[in-house]
Design a protein around this nucleic acid. Sequence first.
DNA 1: TGTAAAATTGCAATCGATTGCAAATTAAAT
DNA 2: ATTTAATTTGCAATCGATTGCAATTTTACA
Lengths: 336, 336
Amino acid sequence: MTIKIRTLSDLAKVAGVSESTASRALNNNSLIAQKTRTKIQELAAQHDFKINAAARNFRLQKTNTIAVVIIKSSELDQSITDPFVLSIVGVIAEELRQHGYDVLLVSHNVNSPACLADYFNMKRADGLIVFGQGDDIDKFDQLIDQQHPIVVWGAQSDKRDYITVGTDNKKGGYLATSHLLQQGYRRIVFAGVLSYETNQRYQGYCQALQEARHTVSAPLDIHFNYDNAYHVTQNMLQQNNFHFDGIIAASDTIALGMIRALNEADISVPEKVAVVGYDDISVAAFTQPSLSSIRQDTFAGGKALVNSLLKLLNNEEVTSTLLTTELVIRHSSVRV
Amino acid sequence: MTIKIRTLSDLAKVAGVSESTASRALNNNSLIAQKTRTKIQELAAQHDFKINAAARNFRLQKTNTIAVVIIKSSELDQSITDPFVLSIVGVIAEELRQHGYDVLLVSHNVNSPACLADYFNMKRADGLIVFGQGDDIDKFDQLIDQQHPIVVWGAQSDKRDYITVGTDNKKGGYLATSHLLQQGYRRIVFAGVLSYETNQRYQGYCQALQEARHTVSAPLDIHFNYDNAYHVTQNMLQQNNFHFDGIIAASDTIALGMIRALNEADISVPEKVAVVGYDDISVAAFTQPSLSSIRQDTFAGGKALVNSLLKLLNNEEVTSTLLTTELVIRHSSVRV
DNA sequence: TGTAAAATTGCAATCGATTGCAAATTAAAT
DNA sequence: ATTTAATTTGCAATCGATTGCAATTTTACA
């Protein structure tokens, strides 16, 4: 290990062959005699030589990288720190690694002039996994580019023809609401700003109530984080504006924020007000009270996203995936 | 927008200048007349031309990328899905984006033959932020390479001379334990496999107990996830092996898993057993009972990691950072 | 108008690896 | 020993952008 072997050309020189032979040897190309191959591979290992990925990818016109893009709908949107999103990102990262891809983690502003196609134009990624269809579907739509391998987390739609992986939001909303009705709650409200995605949950909520001939309320405008949920609920309570005995929250974080406000106002959950969340984040089982929730399986979701993308990259036929949705009943929604 | 402008050379041709001029114009180089610059920039914008980042980075011999490496100590270790790690990763991603860096998210096996320096050899990253010093410090040490810009999350040490950002683990353990003693708990145990990092917490635990002349127990061998904590505790209870009235958990996930097992065995927290967790993950406030915990500020931590790394990249002097640690008292540790 | 100085632009090499094609070497067959 | 075939290796172009240096154009001024 006297001189540092930095480039393929160095390696070739030391091995006494040409660069092309060295390159082929490292790639186990059968053009090269087996003996030569092993010799060069061993030499590389000895000298701790690693191919320059930047140069290689540049030459091969690919990046070996998948960008996971989390779209912020506004500067205030912190979805990149949302536990649900992060946990699915964790699964994706692990899954892609096993397939030899690097993962580029990006948060991207929906208002920024750049569009998703730029990741391809700039040769920064071979494919994209995108979160954040939710908040502004039309702006989002402009970002998407059917030409390239892109898979989106979220709700399916006939109108959009990119590939999505998501859960059945309407069914989720329906399941949650039916459950509360069954438990005897009647004045049920949906908590969460309506976006493309949550609107489907709201539709499920409406359907359940209408089938049971109960009143549908307008959804509460609450954003996807603890704090906003907490404060909005606190305000409603202070102004005597809270007339509900059941809450279908658009996310677990919202549910938890609201429960805190309710608890602090001495309104007990689930005795006075029942709550069902959405996502079934990993701590839902441990909250006070433990949180009933609509399960979105991050593991299955992450795997499906990666699978679909790999197929797209492989030019195989792919269709959108609708993951099964299920209601996990815990304490926050069951009268004792 | 008749022909597609794909490369700088295309752009130059359309603009009627040479490649070098086009390049300089896009980079706002003052060698080029202002008029020419604007003309070319507008042309690029019109035609939606984006520089090929792969080619550019290759030429400039840098990657514009920071790798966030999460080291798995074993195949079973799922630290990439740990909420604490993920939330700090979220902060880092956002922070680096604001500084114009891409973030490569990698989980890396401590046993894998590749070492961290490979990320530089392969020109995959300009710098590294590493998690996972914890479990096998010696193996970890081999991975680290003082030549390159690397910042590690975790405990400081005189013996290691890479830059770290972390909290005062000993103090954290001390604070948690003192608090339980003050509340009148006496048979206190530390729950968590001892690693380089958790060992310091354990030392703090020992110190507090020794100062108060109480018995120090051996730590419980529990890994960093709910399930293991839950099962180990369940087993101890079933075998009548659990003789403690206080738990200092090495992480919140461990704490929550243990509390579940205790609850299911009708051992109430905090009446019978008090629990203090570690990390103060965002849901600690919402658990049943709400979880007292040693706060590790992910926001400050992420910012500090990024800051230190940027300084290293800039060849500035950097020292390790010790973040302040504080005890957040909630219900799980306070006798009513 | 002529000349020097200043401003602007272009040529060509470079980063490191891959690969089609041709050349050289070896083996096989007559 | 000679020709043919098979195997192995190397030359040189290529991917797209950047930049030192030289060449050209413009401007300023006598």
